[in-house]
Design a protein around this nucleic acid. Structure first.
Lengths: 238, 238
DNA sequence: GTCTATATATGGATAGAC
DNA sequence: GTCTATCCATATATAGAC
């Protein structure tokens, strides 16, 4: 769960000065065989930060609140993450790992109906399980992606480019209607993330204190049906 | 363009103490027949505020930046709007006026295909013309709707309830597939607002400096086609 | 590696002259 | 009704004792 740049992770570090790590070197190797204090503290800070950044945004979040939620003194937070921005970057990097891989179901050999239904279900599962991750991401984009712009224009853009090619293949094979592949991906993103990012509105309209399993099941079914009927050719849907 | 509560506007004032207006009374009635100084200053502040709140969120926005963008000294802003929160509330109220009415196209007598296509086109037009309005709203919801929660649970909820009834009618008449009406509305909202709220991501993926008329035309067509094929019965789509 | 105390900056809001 | 100067609260970040 290290937040080190290992060069295989999507890097969002390029936008600002990427400072070097902790003084480094003397990593505590405790009797139980792990540098556990640092690790567990970092994880707790990252989890607390995800919640607070989701609820308050970058500017609204305070290091004091994050530290309190992680049950650590504020100065300790600054020991592990020199600046608020560095902590935020680490949270964002964690979030991206979640988002990235689900699109990999889109391969030319697969049936679009299956791949798309699975994707919708998977994204909605994340919206339920990690709503704060989704919100941090949404907030970042909403405000112009100051920390993530280069990631969007590089990693993400290429990835969508690839998947658009797969969708074009499906269309050419007569399995999908002749739609614009990239706009189709936007629409998948939009409907699946809505339930995490706009949950307050969804709950208010449905009159729920919190969204239940049944609500998410209903959302998944409705979205799948709408999207599949919307994008498949009659023969493609079998 | 007054921001007064006239009781017919959707009220968002109930969450916090709604302070009385300016000292009041002596409204300048200038030679040209309008209280123009106040009015034009208020409008400029509201427009500046919409932009800044959209870009930075409530906490990230500073009254200094808003005032600068409106080309007024900061103290002047506080003369017209006592607090940052009051100014924010006024911006939100403006935004809600835009959002509310478009759903009125949903009436039992109309053909769903037409009503829905018009709605999608109208919402996307707003996403293009007033992206900042959309972003302010999105940001408010994203962070738990601290200023708007009661509006969501009352006005908005009732409104969606009404429209859900219309959709059920369409379904009963065999014009639409048997979907969940409220989830369907969520999906309409999600896809149409995506292009305003997530424009940075959309632009990055499409490789555009800014979204063009053609991009919005493509979005409109793609969304309409997906949604209509997705929700109409074969006979319903004629 | 932890934590108290504090330096420093920023931003919301207002006093009071014009 | 306008605007300069300023008050004061809050927040990031660090120094330095433990």
């Amino acid at each position: 769960m290290s937040r080190q740049r290992t060069a295989r992770k999507p890097s969002i570090s390029s936008d600002k000065s990427s400072k070097t790590r902790r003084p480094g070197g003397l990593r505590k190797i405790s009797a139980n065989g792990r540098g556990t204090i640092r690790e567990s503290n970092e994880v707790r800070l990252l989890q607390a930060a995800e919640t607070v950044f989701a609820e308050r945004g970058f500017s609204g979040a305070t290091t004091a609140e994050i530290a309190a939620r992680a049950k650590l003194p504020k100065a300790n937070l600054h020991y592990y993450f020199r600046t608020k921005a560095e902590l935020y970057r680490a949270v964002l990097a964690n979030v991206l790992e979640l988002w990235l891989d689900e699109l990999d179901r889109f391969t030319p050999e697969r049936e679009p109906a299956e791949a798309i239904a699975e994707y919708v279900a998977a994204k909605l599962k994340w919206s339920r399980m990690r709503p704060n991750a989704s919100k941090v991401f949404a907030n970042e984009i909403l405000h112009g992606a100051p920390f993530m712009k280069s990631y969007l224009s590089n990693d993400l853009r290429r990835r969508v480019e690839d998947k658009a090619e797969v969708i074009r293949h499906w269309i050419a094979r007569g399995k999908m209607r002749p739609l614009d592949p990239k706009h189709f991906v936007f629409q998948l993103w939009a409907v699946t993330q809505h339930y995490a990012d706009f949950d307050v509105q969804v709950r208010a309209v449905l009159g729920r204190g919190r969204l239940t399993d049944r609500d998410f099941a209903a959302a998944t079914e409705n979205i799948s049906a709408l999207i599949l009927h919307g994008c498949l050719t009659p023969s493609g849907s079998r």
